[in-house]
């Protein structure tokens, strides 16, 4: 059984001009000890998907359909109380805005101790000990002194380490990491990815890595789900998907990158831009930019279906890609 199974997840945003579907029937599975990458251009709904999974969407957005199964519990149906109990020990997230996410008025030690205080009811002293241990584990120098420092006294890379430490504090089954390296310089990015990899192996977590960085996916992930305009358009093992893409969008992404791309480099764009959420066409979501588009693509939306091996693609003409 997969550690995390997301099925048909749909998120609508309430706007003055009516609801917008930011995430539309997204599904994927993440396995224990493996990394699944959620890959896609900016605005395709990656963060919304992650926030929907952890149940922390902005008030204007809500899950309208689908299920998120973690250790046998459907999080979408679970009570607030049950979700709270699972937040930390079973499911953890490193948010995209991580570098500003720490509470400015508390020491990092207090904040690192919080999972232990909340879920294990530890005394302040015990929890502080755990916090120091965690800081040591994620490579923060002089943890016994730095534990009493405040967030603004740490560099971006160190803050990201602290947030990762906070997320893995209680050995969650699943860790969602939303663009964990985007805001950092290249050398620090490599260190953070190495840390995540170590922690994943050591704690046998399933990691969902959210990124728009193809090279990062190629290096770090076992499986990938490619998202476009709120839909998963292709999914499968990274080597298979990148070796022989089954969706024109995946192929376009791969073609737009030089063969030996450096980590952290922006995706060179495919012609055109993703559709505005308010004007997603009927039929295939990718039709406006697809070189293979034809009448059937405008009439009928392709469903995600098995192609070769363990891969699935949502394209009527996948064999032509």
């Amino acid at each position: 059984m997969s550690a995390l199974s997301v099925q048909d997840l749909t998120v609508d945003i309430e706007t003055p001009n009516g609801p917008l579907r930011a995430v539309n029937g997204v599904g994927f599975e993440a396995e224990q000890g493996e990394t699944l990458a959620l890959l896609g251009e900016s605005g395709c709904g990656k963060s919304m998907t992650a926030q929907a999974i952890v149940g922390l969407l902005e008030p204007i957005a809500s899950v309208t359909q689908g299920s998120v199964t973690l250790n046998g519990t459907d999080l979408v149906k679970a009570s607030r109380r049950k979700r709270r109990q699972m937040a930390g020990p079973e499911l953890a997230i490193v948010f995209q805005d991580a570098l500003t996410a720490l509470n400015p008025v508390y020491t990092v030690g207090t904040q690192l101790a919080e999972p232990f205080r909340i879920h294990r009811r530890m005394s302040a002293k015990e929890a502080r000990g755990e916090a120091i241990e965690l800081m040591r584990r994620v490579g923060i120098p002089h943890p016994d002194k730095r534990v009493d420092a405040f967030p603004h006294q740490f560099s971006g890379g160190m803050r990201q380490r602290l947030l990762i430490a906070m997320a893995v504090a209680l050995n969650p089954t699943v860790l969602l990491a939303d663009e964990p390296t985007t805001a950092l310089d290249v050398t620090v990015q490599a260190q953070i990815m190495a840390l995540l990899k170590d922690l994943r192996a050591e704690r046998e977590m399933a990691v969902v890595l959210i990124t728009h960085d193809l090279a990062l996916v190629a290096e770090e992930a076992d499986k990938v789900a490619v998202m476009y305009a709120g839909h998963v358009v292709e999914t499968g093992p990274v080597s298979e998907v990148f070796g022989d893409p089954g969706h024109p969008y995946t192929k376009g992404l791969l073609d737009s990158v030089p063969v030996h791309v450096a980590r952290g480099e922006e995706l060179a764009s495919i012609g055109g831009t993703p559709p505005d959420l308010a004007s997603i066409p009927s039929g295939c979501v990718y039709q406006a930019r697809c070189p293979l588009a034809r009448q059937k693509c405008r009439d009928e939306r392709p469903q995600l279906k098995a192609t070769q091996g363990q891969r699935k693609a949502a394209c009527h003409f996948t064999e032509e890609v």
């Binding site: 952890v54 922390l56 709270r84 109990q85 699972m86 937040a87 930390g88 020990p89 953890a92 997230i93 948010f95 805005d97 500003t100 996410a101 720490l102 509470n103 400015p104 919080e114 999972p115 909340i118 879920h119 947030l163 906070m166 997320a167 504090a169």
Partner: peptide, 16 residues
């Protein structure tokens, strides 16, 4: 603020 969402992701309840 982002720190409130972070706190919730650690399982903090409303009162906290």
């Amino acid at each position: 603020a982002p720190y409130v969402r972070l706190a919730r992701s650690k399982g903090a309840g409303d009162l906290r």
